[in-house]
Nucleic acid binder design. Structure first.
Lengths: 170, 170
DNA sequence: CATATTAAGTCAGCCTTGTTGACATTCCAA
DNA sequence: TTGGAATGTCAACAAGGCTGACTTAATATG
């Protein structure tokens, strides 16, 4: 095989990090970390009649203002019925605005209102605070590796979505 | 402030990796990667009348054979009613065995049967295959960083659980 | 122009998995 | 012996997924 990517910094055996036990360990880390990752926004939302699905919608509308419903669907990976339920409440509550497309009038372009942007900020700031602390504690090299592994773990379609989002921010 | 942990390897500004944009980016990476992380087992389970909750129970019973219901509850972070529903079907279907404690007969100790262990293997092997590919692609340094950041992202209680699980494997 | 396709929205119904609250049983320990 | 802990169970509910069927409007295509 000769996968010579190198040896662990601790000087262990080659490819020790690819043993089943290490992989199980990584899976557990993902599980526990994702819980932490969502904990703070979830706590905020619990008092507001919204859930994690609303957070996700707010996040991606904020990241790509003017996105269409279809595009949001493919980013979130849910059915339109599921998204619609969430989107409807956000629009009714004045957090999201839906504008008919100028060039293609079938499309609806989604934007956050001021209130929507405010809630998005509150949620993502809570989430960022935790990530900031984790990044700080782990250091820049670790953050690079973190992102590299996560990216490699995505489905190809999602990786494309993920990278496209970055483009929009130049 | 003077957080002198260093500069990005690309030679960019100090603490560039702690900007709000970088943190948002990390959050999106977590979102998309977690989808990939659960995709394969979910696909397998869809054909079997089980869900992600069953996978989690099987995983942690396998990781800590003989664990009590209460211990499993605190690892999974759900209510006993929620866990019980899942556990009941697994026991009925002969995938999990529940033995009355010898020293404390109130406690139930949980074990996988052969069938349970087989399903657990199938699920976790699918999950590990993806992680193995991601680890290989990212390299050992990245994996170290990945785990470091994830660990820093956990709630302290979860971090304790996570580390305790490691102890049990020496 | 006629027709097919697409985007969006809606209704109804279902499933999984989470939640509370109430309550029974069993058993350990003070 | 009594209080509390661990477990299990019942009922009811909510969020957020899903499928399927259908409408409306607008665009694309023959």
């Amino acid at each position: 095989m000769a996968e010579m990517q190198g040896r662990g910094p601790a000087g262990g055996d080659m490819l020790l990090y690819l043993t089943d036990e290490q992989l199980r360990r990584g899976a557990e880390a993902m599980f526990f970390a994702y819980r932490g990752f969502t904990a703070d926004p979830d706590r905020i939302l619990a008092n507001k009649n919204y859930g994690r699905a609303h957070h996700r919608a707010l996040h991606f509308i904020n990241a790509a203002p003017g996105t269409t419903v279809n595009n949001l669907l493919s980013i979130l990976g849910v059915t339109k019925q599921s998204l619609n339920r969430v989107l409807r409440t956000l629009i009714e509550d004045g957090l999201v605005e839906s504008r008919v497309g100028r060039v293609d009038k079938r499309e609806r372009h989604l934007f956050l209102t001021e209130d929507g942007a405010a809630l998005e900020r509150e949620l993502s700031e809570a989430q960022r605070a935790r990530m900031r602390a984790a990044y700080k504690q782990a250091g820049p090299e670790a953050v690079l590796g973190f992102r590299r592994v996560l990216e490699a773990m995505m489905d190809p379609d999602m990786r494309r979505q993920y990278r496209d989002l970055q483009e929009g921010r130049g």
